[in-house]
Amino acid sequence: MKKLFITLMTITMVSILAACGSTEEGSAENEASGEKETITLGVTPWTSTVPPTEVAQLVIEDMGYNVEQTQADVASTFMGLSGGDIDAYMDSWMPVHEVYFEKYSDSIEDTATSYDDAASGLVIPEYVEGVNTISDLKGNEDKFGNTIYGIEEGASATEELRDLIEEYDLDMELVPSSEGGMMAQAQKDMSKEKPVVFYGWRPHTMFNKFDIKLLEDEDGFFESASVHVVTNKNLEEKAPDVYNFLSNWSISIDDVEEMILKIEEGADKKDVAKEWIENNKDKIDNMRQ
């Protein structure tokens, strides 16, 4: 029995040492091959999020990282950023998203500004006469079916719209939906030249495709926004070259709208991103310095 016990212990120790050697060998191989960590990018269900995220993914992959995308609403995206499940988010709207920075200030960082002058607010078709401001909706609510169409629950803009309805004392109900659902309803009404009011913003192809106007917001609910890159505070340590690239990130609102339009017309989103990178090599090189 004693000999059997010693034999079994010997086999066990040999197995453990072999396993450790295998692990160390694997780690050495990973280091030798330059294999890097996975970078996760948050993606909200808005067309404006897609082009910058696709461009960022291609550039980060070119640095040698694996890149994954996590689809979520904006509230969940910021929660993921805070917890480290998401490393970066390319489409944070300020000042609308300030509430998330206040909530997660210890764990997230406002890393760069993508572009400024991103207008947003309530829009209506140009053929609707006599309504040019949000105040003009008062007394005309029935013309619009007493309805304002908006984007998904969880978006900061959705709560802003509810506050707007109350502040302007409008006899209207907000109907939240996905961006696609909202635009489908608006397009349906506009095809019949019916009055319709819905949430609009740039960058978005709605301003290229439809003859619409942004209602003047006298109370300043939707001031001109700037779009930012947000990262988890650990990204600089985890992947300093990626953090450096994102901290230098910028893109024009016109370029984003042009890419959105190409994607909506059927082009592959990765091909569109590759084309933009090819046309902006010097800009990308400067971001990576």
Rank of each mutant, 00 (worst) to 15 (best):
P51W: 07
K262W: 09
M182I: 06
I16Q: 03
D136I: 03
T53W: 04
V197Y: 07
D87V: 00
F222S: 02
A18T: 15
A28C: 05
R162Y: 12
F245G: 00
V272H: 08
Q185S: 15
E223N: 08
F207E: 01
M172E: 10
L137G: 10
L58M: 04
S27L: 08
D106Y: 15
Y115R: 15
S226F: 06
F222Q: 03
S27R: 12
S82K: 08
S178N: 14
K213T: 13
D285N: 02
T111H: 06
A225N: 14
V14P: 01
A19Q: 13
D217L: 08
E258R: 10
S177T: 15
I60P: 07
A186E: 08
V272I: 11
R288N: 01
A155Q: 15
E160R: 01
M259D: 12
T158S: 14
E152W: 13
E29A: 11
E218V: 04
M1T: 08
S27C: 03
W201T: 06
V14Y: 12
T23F: 13
N132T: 08
A184N: 10
D217H: 00
T70Y: 13
G130I: 05
I277V: 05
F221L: 06
W93R: 11
E141S: 09
F101L: 07
I253W: 00
A119N: 08
E160N: 02
E31H: 05
E223R: 10
E126S: 07
N132G: 11
E31V: 07
S107I: 02
A119W: 03
L174M: 12
K283N: 04
H204A: 05
N234S: 15
V131P: 14
G180C: 10
L8F: 05
D136A: 14
T44Y: 01
G145C: 06
L81C: 03
A118Q: 11
V272A: 08
Q57M: 01
F221C: 09
A72Q: 04
K3V: 04
G200I: 09
S22H: 14
E141D: 06
T12K: 07
T147S: 11
L214K: 00
F198E: 13
V59M: 00
I148P: 03
T147E: 10
L41D: 05
D189M: 03
T12F: 07
E258M: 13
F78H: 14
S252F: 11
D163M: 08
E278A: 09
G42S: 07
L215A: 04
L8A: 10
E54D: 08
C20M: 09
A19M: 13
G26Q: 12
L261P: 06
T23V: 15
A75L: 06
G150D: 05
E265T: 01
S250M: 00
F101I: 03
P195I: 06
A267Q: 06
